[in-house]
Amino acid sequence: MDKIELGQHILSRYNEDLEQLRTDVLQMGGLAESQLREALRALATSDSDLAAEVAKLEARINQMEVDIDDECNRTLATRAPAASDLRLVIAIIKTITDLERVGDEAHKIANIVARRGALDRGGIDGYRIVRHLGNVSLSLLHDALDVFARLDAPAAVAAVRRDRQIDEEYDAIQRQCMTFMIEDPRTIRAMIDLMWVARALERIGDHAKNICEYVIYMVGGRDVRHVAIEDVERQLGAQVAAGSAAAADAPSAGAGN
């Protein structure tokens, strides 16, 4: 099973509830994504007013987390979901925690910009140092939400792989910042702020990766947290192959063993 289908419950209200939950998550994800994009824009343009605006979005994301959590609790209590429905609800509960933290990290970046303005000191363009990391994190978050919307496990695996790029980039930024600080102690304040920004972006990559892992769980029922990505790919490949084999001899798939 590469993808799972929702819908066609006998209880149409149940269908609607689950669909609504997914829509809410995507909406919350969209909000977190735009918060991050705006925080990065504020950083690029050293616009502390924009940064202050971005920081305000935080409360809305928090509220959405509480509301969706509530709705998940209600669904668990009243519908007792099973199999893919259960996995969907569990994955949603986890996903919104990560999205809320993405919001927190974007909020941190916005706060740094609002407090400090530009991170440029001694002829160093702070934004340029983290620009690439920011773009990769933003696009990974975007992909994670896309994978969630389409319930596409193979794409989720590919996205998980990209988190490594982020980790490598983060290491490079740390080394770069240290070099600048050694060369000119007057840059220390700006470089520490920059490292906080880089750290926030790296964490956002981790949260996006987590969301992809929940999607893999939701689709195939396999918990891939703390599993090497190569093993996941192998398992998923085997699963896909087995799935098409099972479809080929579907009539005999029942009673025999």
């Binding site: 066609q8 419950h9 006998i10 979901p81 099973a82 199999a83 893919s84 996995r87 195939g220």
Partner: peptide, 19 residues
């Protein structure tokens, strides 16, 4: 069976999609 059934018909039945 209740978290990750291997057959589609099982999945449909336990999630209330049978009908």
């Amino acid at each position: 069976l209740f978290t990750n059934p291997s057959q589609k018909r099982t999945e449909d039945y336990i999630t209330g999609r049978y009908g």
